[in-house]
Design a protein around this nucleic acid. Structure first.
Length: 311
DNA sequence: AGCAGTCAAGCATTA
DNA sequence: TAATGCTTGACTGCT
C-alpha cells in the first residue's frame, strides 16, 4: 500500500506532443452528415494514437473529449454513430481494457441536472446519454466515469441541492445507463465538498475531489479531511479507484491588467506544490487528472515526481 | 498565410 | 446591459 503503486496519472482531452491530435469539430452552420462522419473518423484515429502515446509513457488515466462526436446530442444529428463506428469504438475499448487505462469524460457547463427549466434538463440528460453511450459502445465497465458539476444555485443553494437530489433519484428521468457512470465534482464557487457530500448522502453518487477548486472554495476543512470524505463515496469494487482532479493557480507575474488569475489553471505544473500534495496525501489511493494547460508535458513531470516519491 | 471574429447549449460575476 | 470565464481552443471568412 506504498504510495505510487495504485495511483494512475493522466491529463484531459488533448495531447500537444503528437501533431494534429486535438479533437476536431466544426460549426453548426456548416453541418453535414459527411462532414460529421469524416470528423469522427479522424477523432477516433487520433484518440487511438493518444492512448498509444499514453501507454508508452505510462500515463494511464485519460479524459476523452466531449467533442469526439460533434453535435451528437443536437437534434440536427440523425446519424446512427453507434452502429457506424461500433468496431472502431470497440477496438479502442479493447485497447483501454488491455492496458488498464482509466477513462473519464467531462461534459461542459451546459449540463445542469438541477435546472428548474425542463428543456435545459432534457438537453442535459441527452448530453449525458451521449457520453455514456460512447463508453458503453467501447464496452467499458462502470469504472469509466462521466463527471459533472452540481449546477446552478439560482439564489437558493438548499433548494438547488434538493432539486439535484430529486432529479437524480427520479428513475423515470435518470436511468441506470447514466447512473452507473455519473459522478459529481466540487466546483470553485457554488457547491463545495461539503455540499457534494450532502448530495452523496441522499444519492450515493461518488465525488471527484478537485483540489484546486477546494483551495478556492471550502469551509476551511483541511485538504486531507475533505479528500478523505470524497474518497469514501467510491465503491471500489464497482466504481474503481476514486478520481481526483489536480491543478494549481496560474500566477504568471506582471500581467498588464494586474488582475489575479486565481481561477485559471496553471500553464505548467508546479513540481514543488505537487510534491507537497503527494506528501500530504500519502497512503491514500486514487487516480489523478492533472488539469494543467500544457497537458501531457505536466502529466509526465507529475509522474516523475510520483515515482521519486514512491522510492 | 495570417488575422480577427465567432462558436449549440447556462450560470454567476464583473464592468 | 453586456462581457467574461468556465476544460478553452479552433473554426471560419476575410484580407
Amino acid at each position: 500500500m506504498g504510495l505510487g503503486f495504485g495511483i494512475r496519472i493522466g491529463y484531459p482531452c488533448i495531447n500537444n506532443s503528437i501533431p494534429h491530435t486535438s479533437p476536431s469539430t466544426f460549426r453548426l452552420a456548416s453541418y453535414s452528415e459527411n462532414k460529421l462522419v469524416q470528423t469522427v473518423k479522424g477523432n477516433l484515429y487520433h484518440l487511438a494514437q493518444i492512448l498509444k502515446y499514453n501507454v508508452k509513457n505510462n500515463l494511464l488515466f485519460f479524459r476523452i473529449s466531449s467533442d469526439l462526436i460533434p453535435f451528437a446530442s443536437h437534434p440536427i444529428c440523425k446519424l446512427d454513430w453507434r452502429a457506424l463506428f461500433q468496431s472502431e469504438l470497440e477496438q479502442i475499448g479493447d485497447y483501454i481494457k488491455q492496458h488498464d487505462i482509466r477513462i473519464s469524460m467531462h461534459p461542459d457547463q451546459f449540463v445542469i441536472l438541477n435546472s428548474p427549466n425542463d428543456v435545459i434538463l432534457k438537453n442535459s440528460i441527452n448530453e449525458l446519454t451521449y457520453h455514456c453511450k460512447i463508453l458503453d459502445t467501447m464496452r467499458l465497465d462502470a469504472t469509466a466515469k462521466v463527471q459533472i458539476h452540481v449546477g446552478g444555485a439560482y439564489g437558493n443553494k438548499v433548494k438547488a441541492i434538493d432539486r439535484f437530489v430529486n432529479t437524480y433519484n427520479n428513475d423515470s428521468l435518470i436511468d441506470d445507463v447514466i447512473k452507473r457512470r455519473l459522478v459529481i465534482e466540487n466546483d470553485d464557487r457554488l457547491f463545495n465538498i461539503m455540499d457534494c457530500l450532502s448530495i452523496n448522502k441522499h444519492t450515493g453518487i461518488p465525488i471527484v475531489f478537485d483540489c484546486f477548486h477546494h483551495e478556492l472554495y471550502c469551509n476551511g476543512e483541511p485538504l486531507k479531511v475533505a479528500l478523505c470524505g470524497a474518497l469514501l463515496t467510491w465503491n471500489k469494487d464497482i466504481d474503481g479507484s476514486p478520481m481526483v482532479d489536480y491543478s494549481s493557480s496560474n500566477n504568471k507575474a506582471g500581467r498588464k491588467d494586474g488582475k489575479s488569475r486565481k481561477g485559471k489553471h496553471a500553464e505548467t505544473i508546479n513540481a514543488i506544490l505537487f510534491k507537497k500534495f503527494l506528501e500530504e496525501t500519502e497512503g491514500l489511493d486514487f487516480d489523478i487528472i492533472l488539469e494543467i494547460k500544457d497537458k501531457e508535458k505536466s502529466a509526465l513531470k507529475g509522474l516523475k515526481k510520483l515515482k521519486e516519491f514512491g522510492n
